[in-house]
Amino acid sequence: MINMKIDLEHISRLANLELTEEEKKILPGQIEKIIGWVGQLASLKTDEEEKYTPIDFSLRLDEDEIEKSLSQEEVLAMAPEKDGDFLKVPKVLQGK
């Protein structure tokens, strides 16, 4: 198993996640252990190998038929906050 130090702070920033105090205690160790464990892939000879691609279905063109999709009301009904016909979010720019 390869022991690797991971910059979890950087990774969580990329993933838009923060860790709780409890998670800060256990997650870094666990994640390093898991990354060490998946590191055994390095011992499988794959240099000559192609990357896997899921089953190849031939491309198909849809008929240009008009179908009903979800209405604006239905979509907006799911939103945590809305304003008229718009989704509402907190202000985008930081500062006052």
Partner: peptide, 21 residues
Amino acid sequence: VRYGFRAESRELSEMYLKTRT
């Protein structure tokens, strides 16, 4: 933004972070 839980926040990037956290 569009569905599901949203955490109370004063600005957008903080809202993303808190919601997911």
